[in-house]
Design a protein around this nucleic acid. Structure first.
Length: 496
DNA sequence: TCTGGGGTCCTAGGACCC
DNA sequence: TCTGGGGTCCTAGGACCC
């Protein structure tokens, strides 16, 4: 927790609905509801005029229609929201480079770091008031609620308290007086399930939460959640404002107007969803190893099935084939309400499929080949730019980093002992398995020397990427019985 | 006419490795 | 041959957020 209220939280009021009212003057002053308009739709955003009738986010659209039949019901125009959001984020970055967008309509700003700034409560309030005015200008009239305080928690709660179009700076030292009377559900991260568990141990307010012992909270909520809430209740929150968050998964899902039984149709939908995901992967220059299929049945029971490839891919054929296989693991004969496809385990480099085919990759489901650090790399060249996701590879690093070699997971024989590993000081690694991988995250060129028992010193092969910016993930095949020579026995560097 | 779509983080158990 | 602890990876599900 800081000594000055230098964290600002900005929240655009009823954002989607506000953009609609801005673009269609006839909607101004009227209830506007943005969300799914079908029979299974839910409300994404309700304008304040609609909230008067009790319409809320996440409410079924059918119920919203019952409460507020005269409202305008609109599906989202996300391109417009995105453009408006970008303009707001740009305004925030004029104030400080430390801007963390939480969603299209929400962001934190860290004012610390600018030594010359007046970070007194009065100074921050003046800045926030000017900020609200700038946001209104650049968005064409969309209003924002702004909170500021000594932590993310306090800034967020402050902006919540003054919605809509409000401003609150919480003075340092006043945090617990503000928080303690509140119901626990006001703390972000405390939803219905957590609130119920807390109620059962007699905790209803943040003050009671602060007085509860951490051991009791951990027992009721688990280690991470219990510990985090015990701290938040005492306004202890040192979470940083993180300007750049890397995405961890990309997914697409669809709820159907009517439940689907036809397997061929389900398969076709899986393909469509997988294609959507891969298009995004490609556009964002990402690839991923884990494919997940989500299946919601007619009765809302929900299954996920996932499988992890030996190497990352953004290949729509690979993703779709695997997704269809995962779909087949679940009995869908009674009707499917929702299907989803996701890819996680993201890397920001694309597999260079130099020696394999998509079909090979598809087969290579299973854990990534385990590390055999210090494998016989004759030479490894290339360090990725610091900005890239994969940190600099250290060829001599331990498991999980740098160069690895091992059998392809799909080539392992269950029950058989694991293949030999390379260890420092070892002269020769005998490989008795078939096809193998050499993997060098962050490397651009990898040279491997082979030596066979039969032929003596064997071929030297170099694997490289075309794009100097990319790391290779190079599946290569070597012959059973091949021996690999150690680094210390290497000859002069071979030409690539 | 019950319950969206895009995400993140956590837990727990099993496999496997050292 | 047995025992065991710690760590990582993978899978499935759940809570939560906007």
């Amino acid at each position: 927790m800081r000594s000055v209220p230098s964290i600002v939280h900005l929240d655009l009021d009823a954002f989607f609905a506000a953009v609609e009212q801005r673009d269609k003057p006839s909607l101004r002053g009227k209830p506007v509801i943005v969300g799914g308009v079908g029979t299974r739709g839910v409300v994404a955003t309700a304008s304040y005029e609609a909230r008067v009738f009790g319409v809320r986010s996440a409410m079924r659209t059918a119920e919203a229609r019952a409460r507020c039949p005269h409202a305008a019901y609109l599906t989202g125009r996300f391109a417009a929201y995105r453009i408006t959001s970008r303009a707001v984020m740009a305004v925030l970055r004029e104030i400080s480079p430390l801007v963390e967008p939480v969603s299209l309509d929400e962001a934190y700003v860290d004012l610390a770091g600018d030594a010359g700034r007046d970070l007194s409560a009065a100074g921050v309030e003046e800045l926030a008031a000017a900020l609200k005015e700038r946001v209104r200008e650049v968005t064409g009239g969309v209003t924002a609620s702004v909170g500021a305080g000594t932590s993310k928690l306090v800034a967020k709660i402050a902006s919540d308290l003054r919605k809509p179009d409000g401003l609150l700076v919480v003075e340092p030292g006043a945090e617990t007086d503000l928080l303690h009377p509140m119901p626990v559900g006001r703390i972000p991260g405390v939803g219905p399930a957590t609130a119920e568990r807390l109620r059962r141990i007699g905790v209803h307010t943040v003050g009671e939460l602060a007085r509860a012992g951490e051991p009791d909270l951990v027992a009721a909520l688990g280690q991470a959640h219990g510990h985090a809430l015990a701290r938040l209740a005492m306004a202890e929150d040192d979470r940083a404002v993180v300007p750049l968050r890397e995405s961890k998964s990309i997914s697409a899902e669809d709820t159907f107007e009517h439940d689907i039984v036809d397997p061929a149709l389900l398969s076709a939908i899986i393909d469509r969803l997988g294609t959507r995901v891969c298009e995004r992967l490609t556009r964002e220059r990402l690839s991923g190893r884990t494919v997940t299929v989500k299946i919601r049945l007619f009765d809302f029971t929900t299954y996920t099935r996932s499988a992890t490839l030996a190497g990352p891919t953004d290949d729509v054929r690979v993703v779709n084939r695997l997704a269809r296989r995962l779909l087949a693991e679940v009995d869908t004969s009674a009707g499917v309400r929702l299907l989803g496809v996701g890819v996680s385990g993201l890397a920001d480099w694309v597999q260079e499929d130099l020696f394999g085919s998509a079909a090979d990759v598809d087969l290579a489901v299973g854990p990534r080949p385990r590390a055999a650090a210090d494998v016989d790399l004759v030479e490894a060249v290339g360090r990725p730019p610091a900005a890239r996701r994969n940190p600099t590879a250290d060829v001599r690093a331990g498991p999980g980093h740098g160069a690895e070699a091992g059998p392809r997971s799909d080539q392992r024989v269950p029950g058989e002992p694991n293949p030999p590993r390379w260890s420092p000081g070892q002269d020769v690694m005998h490989t008795e398995f078939g096809p193998g991988w050499v993997w060098g995250a962050g490397l651009r060129r990898v040279t491997v020397r082979f030596e066979t028992a039969a032929t003596g010193p064997g071929p030297v092969r170099t694997f490289a990427t075309d794009d100097p910016d990319l790391a290779p993930y190079t599946p290569l095949t070597w012959d059973p019985g091949l021996r690999v020579s150690p680094k210390k026995a290497r000859p002069a560097s071979p030409a690539p």
